Amino acid sequence: MNDVKKIIYTALAVCLVLCGCKNKDDVNSLFKEVVVNRNMALTDAPHSPACTIDIQVKYLDEKSIRAERINNTIEQRIFNLQQLSMQQAVDAFVKQYADSYRENMMPLYRDDQHDTERQGWYEYQYKLGTTVTPGLNDAIVYRVELMTYEGGAHPNHQTMVMNFDADSGQLLKLNDIFVTGYEQPLCDMLLSELMRKTNSKNMDELHDKGYLMTMDLYVPDNYILGTKDVTFHYNPYEIAPYATGDTELTISYGQLKAIMKKQ
């Protein structure tokens, strides 16, 4: 009898794992992607500086109202464009970015082209990638990772997250998830988590580590509506200096229960 129970429990465990994988695969199977890799020289001269653009952007591949809403939101948020196919939006953005690079950099490069130490100032990079994962109540969590380098001391990194209702395709906002007046209780939870994560006992210790030097902690619109918790994402410079990198603070749904709307 015990052997039979073991077999049943093992089968159930395997089934749960497969169902979890299937859920993630099902979300990704709904999306296709546009991929563009371009390298555009600033001039026709040998060893000219260049602008490198690498884009991989996912879009919902179906004819429906929800696909239209999701894809339009993605286009607007990433490229500041709307009502185009994703391929058209990517092509339009690449052309706009390349034209701006040449128009703005060419006059400056004419004066610096013989200065080898300044060559790196004109090597531009734009790299964008996207991922899709399932979230709370089958929400679609769409994450964008962007790296740009346009001269200067270092590249810039930015993460952007959009959470979509799986049925309607509407972008989920904080007011859709939390009750009225959620801001202060949630902010208190985030501050406690930041102190725990940085091993800080008080605000002075947080300041010593570079956090919240010129601002108070706030609830960001950049959040990952996960299946077990919500992760709030702060990009470099938002609550800490560039060297600190990204800061992610995760709060479980158990902690958030009192301020969440019924899902």
Rank of each mutant, 00 (worst) to 15 (best):
K209A: 10
D54F: 04
D26H: 11
E103C: 03
K209Y: 05
Y97F: 10
G129V: 13
T10P: 00
N71P: 03
D208P: 01
K63C: 08
K173Q: 12
T116P: 04
L194R: 04
D167F: 09
Q170V: 09
I55R: 00
N156L: 15
P134W: 06
C15V: 09
A89F: 06
Y218M: 11
H233Y: 13
D167T: 09
D165E: 09
A240M: 01
R102C: 06
V27N: 02
K173S: 07
K32R: 11
G20Y: 11
C51W: 08
A13S: 12
K209S: 04
H207N: 14
I7Y: 13
M1D: 04
G226M: 05
G245Q: 06
K22Y: 08
M147Y: 02
D25E: 15
P236C: 05
V17L: 15
L174S: 14
K24Y: 14
L146C: 05
E117G: 10
R102F: 01
M195I: 11
Q170H: 14
M40A: 13
D111L: 14
K173T: 05
L172H: 03
T214K: 13
M195C: 08
D229R: 10
R102W: 03
H233V: 15
A139H: 09
D229Q: 14
Y101A: 02
Q125W: 05
F164E: 06
V35N: 03
V141P: 06
F31D: 00
Y253K: 09
T148H: 00
K95M: 13
P134E: 07
A41G: 02
S48M: 08
K262Q: 15
